[in-house]
Design a protein around this nucleic acid. Structure first.
Lengths: 141, 141
DNA sequence: CTCCTGTTTAATAATAATTATCATCTAAAC
DNA sequence: GTTTAGATGATAATTATTATTAAACAGGAG
């Protein structure tokens, strides 16, 4: 908890209970929640917190590189407190999203893209879609 | 032009002037326009066409696999009449999007993802971001 | 070619996600 | 403690997209 406070201060951000809650929640989950999901999850703890605060806080965190915003083609964004470079896979059935460990092929892929296009790449978003193991099993019933 | 008509009919779609215009426009450009951009581009040709028609038409085309929808993390979707599997690079400065030829590393990447996650992948979206050659030059001034 | 029927269009309203406004409040510097 | 810049909360506004519905039209039957 103190660690989270320190991180926010390092970035010159005021430490408020709302920010701590959102940050803590994001760091302790792997479900890649949307703003709405975060809002609902924290209602018990912060009954007066408004959804706009969640959006503004997330935006601040994204600006400061503390969380990343995922755009999986759904109707809303999802957020991830793991800011290391990694890709995501989403199940097309249950819509869950999981992190991918760093893929060996990615550096070669980046080189291929840079040399064929002349772009100087800054980053990439790699999204994979398919059926997760759980939904595969259920499909067999 | 007749070819476009034939393609729509093959898919059991009624051929209307609006649909032909949108289809033709998408097929003759590489700018990956948004619904809004298409709407504005066709205003001269179809002054009465509404934005809702553009959305509905695009949606129909996507359902029938005639165009694909890109989700680059902007505030709106972009559309591409090239439905072959390919990736995209976007310039972070001028926001232009270009198609990538099929990348050699992709099949290996898919295999890596499938074996590490147990997912059965159906498709993927690979977006790369960076500075295009033109904007690189301008940056030197 | 003309009529019929189901689809498409256009205008409009509705919805959903996100952002802006602004008065109030509070963290943290003094 | 006071002060103050920045954060919050209530609400309105905005933007992208979808739904509704009446009028228009494409395409096939006769």
């Amino acid at each position: 908890m103190l660690e989270l406070t320190a991180i926010l201060k390092e970035h010159g951000l005021k430490v408020t209970p709302q920010r701590l809650s959102i940050f803590k929640m994001l760091r302790s989950t792997h479900i890649h929640p949307s703003a709405e999901t975060i809002y609902k999850a924290l209602q018990a703890e912060h009954p007066t917190m408004s959804l706009a605060t969640v959006y503004k806080t997330l935006d601040t965190f994204v600006q400061h590189g503390l969380v990343q915003q995922l755009n999986l083609g759904e109707d809303s964004y999802r957020y991830d407190a793991d800011t290391s470079k990694h890709s995501h896979v989403q199940c097309t059935k249950c819509k869950s999203v999981i992190d991918l460990p760093s893929l060996n092929q990615v550096p070669a892929l980046r080189n291929e893209v840079q040399s064929t296009t002349g772009f100087i790449l800054s980053h990439e978003q790699l999204y994979f879609y398919g059926l997760c193991p759980t939904c595969q099993e259920e499909g067999q019933n």
